[in-house]
Write a protein that binds this DNA or RNA. Structure first.
Lengths: 342, 342
DNA sequence: AGGCAAGATGACACCGGTTACCATTCCGGG
DNA sequence: CCCGGAATGGTAACCGGTGTCATCTTGCCT
């Protein structure tokens, strides 16, 4: 310690004239300890700038302090928001956040993740959509002995903890808003098949239409991949329908931007000729023209909650949490032309 | 081990009838080892599914396998690209990536980061712009005993390793391209004062203008904060000049998007009335209308290189690396109207 | 056959914490 | 005045690896 090494618990013990054990008690805030002793030891700790070695601690405790974030980049904005949310929770703790972007389509996905978890001996992992929907993956993590939290669209989950946004309700309300603006021909661009979020949003669309007394028309509904290009393609399909929509709900912002391009290429004016609502409230949403009306879900808060569930034992943490989303009203959705004239 | 615990090196040793030390040699691929023994031990390892405990290893080796990424979110797209680049390098190693978003303006910034590094005993840290420009921070990390790599705009650096993009040259070329398209009134939106990247880009602008035989006009140059709104404000300023520009280079995409809004609000047609070039090639760049001509720098490759410098000892790693950027030509920059008619 | 260097392996302490368990001191109550 | 129990601190072993150094084989040379 004198020679440039970091001070250890032994140095602290020697300098304060107590045993390692006592220092350990001070660090761990053991209640059965004389105040005088505690003070003495704390003074030495401060003087030395002693920081306990987490690796040694992890070894002795047979558990460590690493949380893993496993995702496959659906959306940079969202992933970063999640990271910030997790940090909000763990910043003052001894936990650290380890990230692991993966490729959902890799044939060795499960093995890669297993190796990662085993090698780093993670305490818990957080799964983001879309891989959070992979039940086999969640089960494997649980079997590997770490706690698991999944983020995603609403759905009960027996064993892994769940933090979800209520996509269905949010979409339903967005559609209701379009109806309120006087639209009756409302189109829909769905997310890719097999994604829970895609289904939730589709269900929300159907529900919203029903509530508004409208009937979804398959002729102005299409499916995309959540990517920009697919949104443009879907847009072309919808807009070339015999009776094109005057408003479209897109299951995410990126596809909404694609739709916007498709509309523009046809010489349509958005929002005059076509109202658009997206989902996610990505950075792009506010920056495109016109600014996109979209659904924002509280990513950061959700992630922060999820992290709490990960590190806090207790049964309460096991109950799924459902978060509401907000409709952000911008310029891309306006009353149907001629509606006021009715 | 039999009772559900993870197998340890002792289990492997016992089952294969050799000592711990020999198993350790197998794991570390020691060359002085009998092939027969190695084979036997490896068989047992495979059979048991033994994975060495990194924490114990870190303790014994007095170094660990954690790389830290410290940043304050200049741009989600970029941060995520960096994370992916780092993973490209460390995926097959025992290193893990620990992220730490921070707030550049926090008064306790340095202390927070120090605590983080000391607590987790990071092996190395990577600093992203803009905090990578903080020399005190870099020095502190070095003093704490971890290797440091800074990403940023070109500039020699004595102690910390540097991975940089050649912003100046890239901007210079972008301006040359505008000149080639026939523009002579070229405006500029600078980044915030005090940022190295902002200065590099500004220098590049001046250089490019000079090369094209043009003189920068302060009346059509403004400064922004790299945020959308500041781009819009700068745009209003530039466009209300007595002699407005026919083309503008914006120091990043987000401000370019703001400029685009400003132009549109004035009834200008982009690109017919105004050509725009941005910087960064964020997701937004391709999704706005018209698609933005912009400078793309190889974030992922740079980050991958940076990670290699972090974990590979050797003096070669200490030399700064400079990466070239590409001009992505999209629809937002077109020939000056009437130019062909000349 | 003897000597010896090189190769292969093992014994043991140690990294920096933790826990189990024991020893001491200091009480109050019978 | 003695004893039991709480409060406090110490000792040793352990977590799962690694380094050092000693030991035991070999093969080869003379």
């Amino acid at each position: 310690m004198a020679n440039g090494q970091k001070p250890t618990i032994n140095d602290v013990a020697r300098l304060s004239g107590v045993s390692k054990k006592t220092v350990s008690r001070v660090i761990n805030k053991s209640p059965l300890l004389n105040d005088a002793t505690r003070g003495k030891v704390e003074a030495v700790i401060a003087q030395l700038g002693y920081v306990p070695n987490l690796q040694a601690r992890a070894l002795a405790l047979r558990r460590n302090f690493l949380l893993g974030l496993i995702h496959d980049n659906p959306n940079a904005q969202m992933v970063l928001g999640v990271q910030e949310g997790i940090l909000d929770t763990i910043r003052a703790t001894e936990f650290a956040l380890v990230v692991r972007p993966v490729d959902r389509h890799s044939p060795t996905l499960l093995d890669d993740i297993r190796g990662f978890i085993e090698q780093q001996r993670l305490y818990g992992v957080m799964l983001l959509p879309p891989i959070s929907e992979n039940d086999n993956l969640a089960r494997m993590c649980l079997d590997l002995g770490c706690t698991v939290v999944r983020m995603g669209s609403a759905r009960l989950d027996e064993d892994a903890r769940l933090v979800a946004s209520n996509d269905r309700q949010a979409v339903s309300e967005a559609v209701a808003w379009l109806a309120e603006l006087g639209h009756t021909r409302i189109g829909f661009i769905a997310g890719p098949e097999g994604f829970r979020s895609a289904r939730e949003r589709q269900d929300g669309f159907v529900e919203g239409m029903a509530r508004a007394g409208l009937k979804p028309d398959p002729a102005i509904m299409a499916r995309g991949t959540y990517r920009f290009e697919s949104g443009r393609a879907a847009g072309e399909q919808l807009l070339s329908a015999k009776e094109p929509p005057t408003a479209v709900f897109s299951s995410n912002d990126e596809m909404a931007a694609g739709l916007l391009h498709a509309a523009r290429e046809r010489g349509l004016d958005v929002p005059q000729d076509l109202s658009i609502i997206g989902f996610d409230d990505t950075a792009t949403a506010a920056h495109i023209w016109p600014p996109l009306t979209t659904v924002r879900w509280p990513i950061r808060t959700m992630a922060s909650t999820a992290a709490r569930k990960l590190i806090e034992p207790g049964s309460a943490a096991a109950a799924p949490s459902l978060f509401p989303s907000d409709l952000i009203r911008r310029a891309s959705a306006v009353p149907r032309p001629g509606k006021d004239a009715q």
